[in-house]
Design a protein around this nucleic acid. Structure first.
Lengths: 184, 184
DNA sequence: CATTTCACTCAACAGTTGTTGACTCAACGA
DNA sequence: TCGTTGAGTCAACAACTGTTGAGTGAAATG
């Protein structure tokens, strides 16, 4: 058998992570409203009251579960267009559950909307710095919007024409489009 | 005073439309889950029970309220890219409430997701017919995804960089990007 | 060993939700 | 004029929700 490490701190750490993991999965699948504390507790094999005791409220559970991976900033080593394209899935695997949970909720949960808007605004600003001078902000915003749309259509909506396509092929086909926006 | 046309059929027609209008507005603002029959009834100045009596269930109310304006098919008179761009807001005003309601709910309400996916798949197919032969379906899907992303970022999320921009300027700036996708 | 601490459970409350059935009353048809 | 119909209301049910407080038993501490 796997060792049963019944140390208090260790047990706590593990169940807390088990709850967070279950929460991420269900938030990502159903969004904030349709996710119930009871469902998260059941998936984590814990009593619903424990979830409350650990996280205080459903809202705080959501924040904790979704906090970790912010969109990484452009590090300037690569050309911006290539860096954006890489994010479609070439260099990292599928999107982290926390990001999916955030996106899934952003249209119906005001706090998630504000969080996503802030993150995207930040990315627009970074991108605007890296591309040509004319209309930089608008063009950057459209590049980010394009990435957003492709991600939603692919990961959340499951457009038929995108379901079979590999991330590499999507990125390749999208390149001239982003390039056109980046160059003005 | 405005005439008080107390004919039975007429009264029914009017209250029914009042309910549908209120439903569209609230569904568009809050999405399916967070919209309550009571809120719709209150906005329509009617008893909640009447909404049920007329529409049977919340789900059916949603379907009726959202049914009407399907995405108009490409009519082939214009070049596809220009036709898509026109939809950003140049030729028609802001998106109809029914469409907004649909989009607002599509990430958290499975039926709305399926409906939107179907509509977008249809548009992809049409667009794929109208553009060059290589990878037509994938390129068409990316064009549609781009439109989706820009619409979400602009109308539902309110990206800062897009909030001030006029639809015409957005369409203009987006043109080379869509053109690149259309031409392969 | 005795006591305290704390991870965890049980049962319940209070509010909200979709939905229903009995009721009221003005418009309608004969 | 009178019975019928149907638009609209009222009060309530049943299920589900987030949330709470009292309790339990094993680990930590002395």
């Amino acid at each position: 058998m796997e060792g049963t490490p019944t140390s208090r701190a260790e047990r706590r750490r593990r169940t807390e992570e088990r709850i967070l993991s279950a929460a991420r999965a269900i938030f990502a699948e159903r969004g904030f409203q349709r996710t119930t504390i009871r469902a998260v507790a059941a998936a984590a094999e814990v009593d619903p009251a424990l979830v409350m005791q650990y996280f205080g409220s459903k809202q705080e559970l959501f924040e904790q579960a979704v906090r970790i991976p912010s969109i990484p900033p452009l590090d300037g080593e690569l050309e911006p267009v290539e860096e954006l394209l890489g994010r479609i899935g070439m260099k990292m695997g599928p999107l982290p559950q926390a990001t999916l949970a955030m996106m899934r909720s952003m249209l119906t949960h005001p706090d998630a909307a504000e969080e996503v808007r802030g993150k995207l605004d930040g990315q627009v600003a970074q991108l605007a710095d890296a591309i040509g001078p004319d209309d930089a902000e608008l063009r950057a915003a459209l590049m980010v919007s394009t990435m957003l749309g492709v991600t939603i259509a692919h990961q959340l909506l499951g457009l038929t024409a995108l379901r079979g396509a590999s991330p590499e092929r999507i990125a390749e086909t999208l390149r001239p489009s982003l390039r056109a926006l980046a160059d003005g």
